[in-house]
Nucleic acid binder design. Structure first.
Lengths: 247, 247
DNA sequence: CGCGGGTTTGAATGAGTTCAATCACGGTGG
DNA sequence: CCACCGTGATTGAACTCATTCAAACCCGCG
């Protein structure tokens, strides 16, 4: 919950009253171990999930077993804001590490959101950000070299964690195996390993027991053409419109 | 305009009254020739654009000139529903062919949408669909072979055109050079050409003056693992919630 | 100590790129 | 009407980056 508050509060002023309404939402805490499903491709989505702790992944499988990870879901992230209750999910969501989730009924969630413009703005903003991350993922996989991909993803995750913890650390805790990096970056496990080794050899990063240390952020950012603006982390000024969605 | 109506009306029942409100929207018709900018990365987005005719592209440029096309915008498509008036655009939009656009002021648009739940649903649905297309683009570029990428994109564009014209034709008119396919698929121009040749040699497609003929849809679809469900083309049942966005 | 998941390393292979030349074709001007 | 031009498409040859397969390694854990 705390991470959700941090994450959502990052973008716009959300007063204590609004937080109270989130907290009052009936919900169920669930846990999953690595690999377990959360949302299955092809099924209707009747719940909003919020990651409390651990990582989850959105992904699509191909018939022959190839897997593409669309995005990592970190604590504070939620899904599927957009498609709830309407569409069949076109991708799956699974636990990447041990993960704790808050499950909220879609219509409860929507009702709460509808009654609080500030909350609505915050979640809307989170959805914008998520779409931006998808777009960057396309660029990363489509036009970047392996080296750039790996570095770029590390920097993105690092920033996203910072948005929730509130401080930008040079250490990125990685609760997931490198195989997931491979499937996220469209590379083979072997090549991810080799590429990381090269980054290490160049003094850009260091790997620790379960994480990555960013040794030279500036050089790494340049090397990977990383520009955090796409994450839309600037504070949002509250600027209401009329209602913008189905009533 | 007609294409917008077709496109938007595809997903949900939109009565004549709703269409009237769209039509009444003050707007400006603009034209662009190939390469000209429509939305520039980093700038605020104060207008909603709807493609009337021709193709546009959303894309990101890298410093050294590499370009990744995120998505093609076909007649009836609109942008940027999500980010209007709030964020700086994290990508650019340009004309891919000669293109005609309808430009609508963001707040006018929002006001109209807010007052018509059915319209709101339709546009909401279009946004869901667009996000799904982005996700599929990630899979395409991340985990598919060149052959699969090319075939898959052809099939997607073919379907999307069909959603506007109302009938699924085996001929896909291509108003853009192959170079754009390359930048969309994360391949070199040369390899797109080679790959298309191979598809031709296998009797799967044929290229005509300014288009592609799909010779064997079934085989091509299997070969490319194309499953149109991600396009969410099923008719939407109207199922209102409360307001879901900033008020 | 030995097992097992995850990571690393090496060697051979392969898919896709690059560079450069050629080709096809529609448009233009003489 | 035809020669010329330019853009975009195609082809070939050499090369590079990433994959594959297989073996070795590392380390936490029972």
């Amino acid at each position: 919950m705390d991470s959700l508050v941090k994450r959502i509060g990052y973008y716009s002023e959300v007063d204590s009253h609004a937080f109270e309404s989130i907290k009052r939402l009936t919900h169920k805490i669930e846990t999953r171990s690595p690999g377990q499903e959360i949302v299955v491709e092809g099924e209707h989505v009747d719940f909003v999930f919020v990651v409390v702790s651990g990582w989850a992944i959105r992904f699509r499988m191909m018939d022959d077993g190839r897997r593409q990870i669309l995005n990592f879901m970190l604590p504070g992230d939620c899904f599927d804001l957009m498609a709830i209750g309407r569409a069949r999910s076109d991708h799956s969501v699974s636990a990447a590490s041990d993960v704790t989730l808050r499950r909220i009924r879609a219509d409860d969630f929507m009702k709460t959101i509808s009654n609080d413009p500030q909350l609505a703005t915050s979640f809307w903003w989170a959805a914008i950000q998520e779409e931006a991350i998808l777009r960057e993922q396309i660029v990363r996989v489509g036009r970047r070299t392996a080296r750039e991909r790996v570095g770029h993803l590390i920097l993105e995750l690092n920033r996203r964690v910072a948005a929730v913890t509130g401080e930008l650390s040079d250490h990125l805790a990685l609760p997931v195996p490198q195989a997931l990096f491979a499937d996220a970056l469209g590379l083979s496990i072997v090549h991810v390993s080799r590429t990381l080794s090269r980054l290490k050899a160049d003094g850009l990063v260091r790997t620790t027991r379960a994480g990555i240390e960013i040794m030279n952020r500036k050089k790494l950012s340049e090397l990977c053409d990383f520009d955090s603006r796409y994450l839309h982390l600037e504070k949002l000024k509250f600027k209401p419109y009329g209602r913008t969605t189905p009533d």
